[in-house]
Amino acid sequence: MVWIPGCDEIPLSISSVTGPNVELTVVRVGEATTRLHALKIGDQIGLRGPYGQGFSFPTNETTILVGGGYGIVPLRFLFHHYRRYSPAKLPVVALGAKTATSLLFIAELNPQLIVTEDGTAGKKGLISDFLPGLIKQVQAQRLIVCGPQEMVNTLYEIACNSGIPIEASLEEYMRCGIGLCGSCVKRALLVCNDGPVFTTDKLALLCKL
């Protein structure tokens, strides 16, 4: 949870951690993020967390990280973790976005699949159009995804059809972040505490169309 003094406190995922430095990747979408963009070096903000359940870290499986738009941000943090602790078995990265300028961290993540809706980079279409092919090609054993809910819904179906587990980090408005206030409830699940990363069994409740 990131506190922007005098404005609000919002849930953000961590983009990278280097020593004592925590890196956030913030898209300007509302008042709080606009204020974050306006900060100067030396300005101070508050941080609390991290809370809830994180990604698993399977180092003996072929895993595909699928980022939809800005959803790549928490997966970048996970990718760094692999680079540091499991350099011999890095996950495969697939990136999708609306347009080329929304594709983040390409150079660093070296994605095997890039898809844009308008075809300005990589293949044209939705990431879900090309993912079944990639799953077969690399013989993936797990999907770890973050992106818009519709994308997660489709990827959940693809994972089920492919018979492999899926983990997805979901987004929801949060207030307390610690499982008390109920602001982030989806069905009977709390995104802050039961999630934000949900595994196949929980996604079965959250992704059914």
Binding site: G179, L180, C181, G182, S183, V185, R187, A188, L189, L190
Partner: peptide, 13 residues
């Protein structure tokens, strides 16, 4: 009151 009671499903849980 004030704890988790935002909807039917979570109250059921």
């Amino acid at each position: 009151s004030g704890i988790l009671g935002t909807g039917n499903d979570i109250l059921r849980r």
